[in-house]
Design a protein around this nucleic acid. Structure first.
Ligand SMILES: [Mn+2]
Ligand SMILES: [Mn+2]
Ligand SMILES: [Zn+2]
Ligand SMILES: [Zn+2]
Lengths: 142, 142
DNA sequence: AGCTAGTTGCAAATGGTTCTCATGTGCATT
DNA sequence: AATGCACATGAGAACCATTTGCAACTAGCT
C-alpha cells in the first residue's frame, strides 16, 4: 500500500512535469493502472475506474491512455484479434506469451532474443527502435 | 513466367481440393498475390486485381483473402498502426523488419530466435502454436 | 478568488473489415 | 453442350474499437 501510493504519486509527478494536468479522472485511471496485475483493455479499465470515480467516460479513458502512452508511462499492446490492452511501463522490458485458449497473458524476457534482434537489424543496416514479440501458445497437455 | 504459371496453377489446385471454387475474381487476386514481391494491403491488391478483372470488388478481395488464409495459401500480417498486409504462404517461415520512416518491409529469418521461442514456451509449460516477431527500425545513418 | 488553457462527457464521426441479400456463375453431372 | 444448385459476387449497410467536435467544466498558476 505504501509502495503503491508512492508509485502513483511518482506517476502523477511525471505527468505534471510533462504539462499534463492530473484530473480526478486521470488520477482514477492511473491508480487502476498502477494496481492492475493483468493487461486490461480500455473498457475493462473503464469498468474499474468507474468504481473510484463514477463520472469517468470511456472517451476519457482512451484519451488518458494516449496521453500516458505519450508520456511513456503506459504501454499499449495490440495482440492478435483483440482490443488494445495496457500496462504501466515501469517494469523492465518484457515480451508476452498469450494462451490462445484462455486469453491469459504471461510475461517473459530473453536477453538472448533481445540481443539477436539488435544484431539482425544491424546486419540489415538498421537501428532497432522497438519490436514486438508475441508467442501464441496452447497449454501443454501430458 | 513459366514458374509463375505453374505456381498459380498449383495454388488453384489447392483451392479446388479444399472445395473452394476458382472464380474469375479469385484467379485474378491469386495471380496478383503470386506475382507480388511486396506485402500489399487489401486496397492495393484491389487496385492491382482490377487491372486483370475490372469487376473485382473490395468485398471480394477481403472474402478471397480470408478464404485463402483459411486454406493456408496466404498469410495475413497486422503490423503496427497499419491496415492488414498479405503475402502468399509458400515461402519458408520468416519474420519482418519494418522501416518506420518509409514503411518498407524486409524479411529475415533467425533459426536461433525460432528455437529460443519454442524453448521459452516449453519452459512456461506451453506448446508454441505460432508467433509474431516484428522489428521496427530506422535506417542506420553514417 | 480569478484567469485561462487544458480537459471532460456526450454524441457523432471514422475507417478498416465483415456481413446481408438479391443476382450471378463454377463445375459435377447428365 | 446444357442443366442444376451450392457457392460466389457486387453494392452497400452494418460493425465496432477508437477518435473527434464542441460546449461546459476545472486544475493549477497568479
Ligand atoms: Mn506485460
Ligand atoms: Mn513476408
Ligand atoms: Zn522484447
Ligand atoms: Zn519467426
Amino acid at each position: 500500500m505504501r509502495q503503491a501510493k508512492n508509485r502513483i504519486a511518482e506517476l502523477e509527478e511525471i505527468l505534471r512535469e510533462g504539462g499534463v494536468r492530473v484530473t480526478r479522472q486521470r488520477a482514477a485511471i492511473l491508480k487502476i493502472l498502477a494496481e492492475a496485475e493483468d493487461h486490461p483493455d480500455a473498457s475493462e479499465l473503464h469498468r474499474r475506474a468507474k468504481e473510484i470515480d463514477a463520472t469517468v467516460s470511456l472517451s476519457t479513458v482512451y484519451r488518458t491512455l494516449s496521453a500516458l502512452e505519450q508520456q511513456g508511462v503506459v504501454q499499449r499492446h495490440a495482440f492478435e484479434n483483440a482490443t488494445a490492452r495496457f500496462e504501466t511501463a515501469d517494469a523492465p522490458h518484457h515480451d508476452h506469451l498469450i494462451d490462445i485458449e484462455t486469453g491469459a497473458v504471461i510475461e517473459f524476457r530473453s536477453d538472448k532474443i533481445e540481443q539477436l534482434q539488435a544484431e539482425i537489424a544491424a546486419e540489415l543496416g538498421y537501428d532497432l527502435v522497438r519490436h514486438r514479440l508475441e508467442l501464441y501458445c496452447r497449454k501443454r497437455k501430458d
